[in-house]
Computed example of a mutant assay.
Amino acid sequence: MNRRHLLKAALAASAATPGVAGASAEMNLHAFARARRFVETAAGRIAYVEQGKGPAAIFLHGWPLNGFHWRGAMHRLAGVRRCIAPDFLGLGHSAAAPGADLSPGAQAEMIAQVMDALDVAQADVVANDSGTGVAQLLAVRHPGRVRSLLLTNGDVHTNSPPEALRPALDAAARGELAVMIERHLSEPGFAASPEGLGGICYTDPANLTAEAMQAYFPPLLASPERRRQFQAYGVAFEPNPLPAIEARLRALTLPVRMLWGTGDIHFAAEWAVWLDRALPASRGVRLVEGAKLFFTEERPDLVAEEALKLWAAASA
């Protein structure tokens, strides 16, 4: 698809899909589950959902979510991309071997293995939260395989893991974080409270719906091993691998764009500016006033709009 056609698609997407509340025909929980497939890799049995045709785009979610996070963006972009949303090792429906490496570097290598298994030579990458750190590692380790990066609030340079996440990491290290996840399912109103994921990470806590909680949380609690791996995913953020790749980031020539919420306690907008200055082919930063960490689920129209513009510029 050439630049003019991509721009026309971008305009159509932004006009037709004003936001989650007005969107329709995107996959619900049951449709997403029916679409789920698995691929065997050296890292484990990886779950993914694919939608659309065209050049590949890979969507990387955060902790403790899974590929369901991207259902709205995939729906909007499936007309121009083969959209692939894998579940990270230790999260969602992917099955890692007991004792598997769950670090960001290992996750990046797993994504490269998924690309091999699905015959994807190169992909546009869209990322959020810990997925943003993994995307950077993927780009510097396998630069020929990443066509562009759309990065949203997530791990950058020395802000990985962010200090605001320390209580959750400490609870994970003690094996106690699963109890907080259970409270989302057992206590009405907890998700939207200041202690719940909705209150902390969603601009509107109501957007962590009952359906989304059923998509995200039961897989994390399905067995003692799954509970352990979900918590080990967070513990594996340390040691932070991102400062060591700064020189290689500064040498990347692929197009990059930052879409960043300003209301996020974990990843301040200064880190989007850091990326903009560090990456030589950056296409700038778009700030989303007041948006919290998981706004990419709440506002898939913004993701689609920025992705289409970035991809159009990259193909010019």
Rank of each mutant, 00 (worst) to 15 (best):
R147W: 05
P280T: 09
W311M: 13
R277P: 01
A314S: 14
T253Q: 13
L89C: 02
R257Q: 08
D101W: 02
L89E: 01
A13Q: 13
I181Y: 14
R250K: 12
C201F: 15
V39Y: 03
G284F: 04
C83A: 14
L7V: 12
Q51A: 13
R250Y: 03
P280M: 08
P18Y: 08
A106M: 11
G290K: 09
H93M: 10
G290Y: 08
T41N: 03
T262P: 00
A25H: 15
G62H: 01
H266S: 15
V134R: 02
L310M: 07
A78D: 15
D124F: 02
A112I: 02
P188E: 15
G79Y: 08
S130L: 08
V256A: 15
S186I: 05
R82S: 11
V156I: 14
V140F: 06
H5R: 12
L7Y: 09
L197E: 07
R166W: 05
D264V: 09
S223Y: 00
P194S: 14
A117P: 00
L169N: 02
R174C: 02
D129V: 05
F32E: 01
L89Q: 11
G79P: 04
L77V: 12
A100S: 13
G144P: 06
A123T: 06
P241V: 13
S223C: 01
R248N: 07
A139V: 07
Q136W: 07
H69G: 01
P55V: 05
S103C: 10
L149I: 11
H30P: 00
E26D: 14
G199A: 11
A191T: 13
R299E: 12
V156Q: 12
V273H: 13
A304P: 03
G199T: 11
A108F: 09
V256W: 01
N240R: 12
S186F: 05
W70G: 07
E187K: 13
R76K: 02
S223W: 00
D170T: 09
L165W: 07
G52K: 14
E163F: 15
L249C: 12
Q122E: 14
A25R: 15
E109C: 04
A222H: 04
L177G: 00
E182C: 01
A269L: 03
T41R: 01
L259R: 07
A314Y: 02
R257G: 05
A117E: 15
A312R: 03
A96Q: 04
R250V: 03
P300T: 03
Y233W: 10
R227L: 04
D87M: 06
P162D: 08
M1Y: 05
E305K: 11
R277V: 06
G99N: 07
P86K: 09
V146E: 04
P255M: 10
P219C: 10
A210F: 01
G263I: 08
A244S: 14
H5N: 11
A247K: 08
G199F: 04
I84G: 01
R76H: 09
S315T: 15
L302A: 06
Q122S: 15
G99H: 06
A31T: 11
A100D: 00
F295C: 08
I111A: 03
F32S: 04
H75K: 11
A123C: 07
H184V: 10
I46T: 13
L77K: 06
R4L: 08
Y233H: 04
